[in-house]
Design a protein around this nucleic acid. Structure first.
Length: 517
RNA sequence: CGGGGCGUGGCGCAGCCCGGUAGCGCAUCUGCUUUGGGAGCAGAGGGUCGCCGGUUCAAAUCCGGCCGCCCCGACCA
């Protein structure tokens, strides 16, 4: 239980800020953290969420880093319509098959008052769908934009909302509307498109998710059964949540010429011939906020890695009736000194002084729950000693540290960097501890997932199983009957041969099996 | 869409079987005392009990219909 924080101090149980705890009820705990940390909440609109300031602030940090890395990979931002003509969707057969069942459809363009009620009128000649993803409408534009081999590669990215009519919403993980970025590129050759597909996965998604969110992932390829509708190959990064279940944290698809043919995206080669382009698409969404909660939050609430925290430091002045002016002045001064420092190789440290009129103890717990990396409590004692008291979020909520002011200011950047590394290492160790690589037969496989293995957590939940798979879809289905799916065929392959963990047949491919969100 | 459960102040719940016109904890507000680790006391505000209809002198409570939500499945970033 590496990632489970100590709940006792000096042998006596202490109250946790979040109820129920992870061990008591993981699903309820998740919802409570999301709510109490001010990350998000389900709205009154079915299946849709409100992303609250703390959650949105983290999303903005992610956006900033992702946007920078995407641009470094050569893509540029653009924006395409929310509405997509139904006929566009129909053009790629597999794509329709995959998305048709979860579509929001616009059929009218006007409302009229009848018997005191507004009713839709003005039926559209052709219904519009609200984009679930934009391959089709961007493909339509690409067909216009691409003429010559000199136009390639065409590397586009869009920040947008998308709608998928989910039957079973779960805040941040699966909602009817969510925010994401979707990249869409067109290339002259298979090799170039494939290389770019993998470049995004490794250099952008894997890096940002691990280095900024501090969520360790397993990159790999999806099985044919788990592919994106219309893709030739789907690649992904898979993360492990604290209940041992997997969460797909990002995907990158090699679409071959499927969309190019459906949308007539053609170009003239240097030799004068006409060729279809090869396209890719890739995306990460606000689901990453859910991954952050499920990876790093503890029984006292959210824990935010410094690089994605809206504020790395929050200062709480210990205000009383007398002497408050001096304390406040001291707090502001220390805040300014910290702001002049940097972390993460040159990023300025963002500091918020919480001067609201709530009592200090209430403010402290509010920020603990929101997961602020460093909580600075400054009162008369600190002022008298020219020192500070700080609470690093990974520590227990009562284990604050006292040091001199100058020392703190000169080391705060290093403390944040160390915390960032700590979060990743901790989550990686947890993932490793709950990954079994020694399960051989189906009986053992089934027992592990049905009863939980020896490495299962307190709730008896299993984690990942890395084992051989023969490649047969029937074996995949047999695992699925246990609620287990192949999350990916990791790029990191052992290269050995052995029996398929499901059927016992000869197999050379390593697969990651898990229950998933 | 199948199988279970539930809708009562912001949140969590009791009351419903045995109809009589709404209560508890947390949160909120005010005052006083507190204050370095989610304080104590006193007082206050806030709900047409999911919606519609029926029975009745009287419905949160009984009856009928509808809507919504949650959990477990199938589908999924």
């Amino acid at each position: 239980m590496t990632a489970v924080a100590e709940q006792t101090k000096g042998g006596t149980a202490v109250r946790t800020a979040i109820t129920p705890t992870r061990d008591e009820d993981y699903a309820q705990w998740y919802q409570a953290v999301v709510r109490d940390a001010d990350v998000a909440e389900m709205s009154h609109v079915r299946g849709c969420m409100v992303i609250k300031p703390t959650g949105y602030g983290i999303w903005e940090q992610l956006q900033r880093t992702l946007d920078r890395e995407i641009k470094r990979a050569g893509a540029v931002n653009a924006y395409f319509p929310l509405f997509i003509p139904l006929s566009y969707l129909e053009r790629e057969a597999a794509h329709v098959e995959g998305f048709a069942k979860e579509m929001a459809v616009v059929t009218h363009h006007r409302l009229e008052m009848r018997d005191g009620k507004l009713v839709p009128t003005g039926e559209l000649a052709e219904p519009l769908i609200v984009r679930p993803t934009s391959e089709t409408i961007i493909g339509e534009s690409m067909a216009d934009w691409v003429r010559s081999w000199r136009d390639l590669p065409l590397l586009l990215n869009q920040w947008a909302n998308v709608v998928r009519w989910e039957l079973r919403p779960r805040v941040l993980l699966r909602t009817s509307e969510f925010l994401w970025q979707e990249g869409h590129t067109a290339h002259a050759t298979h090799d170039d498109a494939m290389e770019y597909t993998l470049r995004i996965l490794h250099d952008v998604y894997r890096r940002v998710v691990e280095e900024d969110l501090a969520v360790p992932v397993i990159p790999g390829e999806k099985t044919p059964g788990e592919r994106f509708p219309g893709a030739e190959n789907t690649y992904c990064i898979e993360a492990m949540m604290q209940d041992g279940r997997a969460l797909q944290a990002g995907t990158s698809h090699y679409l071959g010429q499927n969309f190019a043919k459906a949308f007539h995206i053609e170009y003239q080669t240097a030799e004068g011939g006409q060729e279809n382009v090869y396209t890719t698409s890739w995306g990460v969404s606000t689901r990453l906020l859910g991954a952050l909660v499920m990876t790093h939050a503890d029984d006292n609430g959210l824990r935010v890695p410094p690089r994605v925290a809206p504020n790395q430091v929050v200062v709480i002045p210990m205000l009383r009736k007398e002497g408050s002016e001096e304390v406040l002045a001291y707090a502001r001064r220390v805040a300014d000194e910290v702001r002049a420092q940097t972390f993460a190789s040159g990023r300025p440290i963002e500091v918020l002084v919480d001067e609201t009129m709530y009592e200090a103890r209430d403010k402290k717990w509010k920020w603990v729950k929101r997961g602020v990396p460093l909580l600075l409590e400054l009162g008369p004692k600190d002022m008298a000693n020219d020192g500070v008291s700080y609470l690093p979020r990974p520590r227990g909520p009562t284990d604050s540290v006292r040091v001199g002011r100058e020392e703190f200011v000169s080391t705060v950047g290093a403390i944040l960097d160390e915390m960032q590394a700590h979060y990743l290492a901790e989550a990686r160790a947890y993932q490793e501890a709950r990954t079994r690589r020694d399960i051989v037969g189906f009986d053992e496989f089934r027992r592990y997932f049905e009863e939980g293995g020896e490495n299962a957590g307190a709730a008896g939940q299993p984690g990942f199983v890395v084992a051989k798979w023969c490649g047969d879809a029937a074996c995949e289905d047999r695992a699925r009957d246990l609620g287990v799916t192949i999350r990916c065929l990791p790029f990191d392959q052992s290269g050995t041969e052995g029996p398929c963990v499901i059927c016992g047949g000869t197999a050379t491919t390593d697969a990651v099996f898990a229950r998933a969100y």
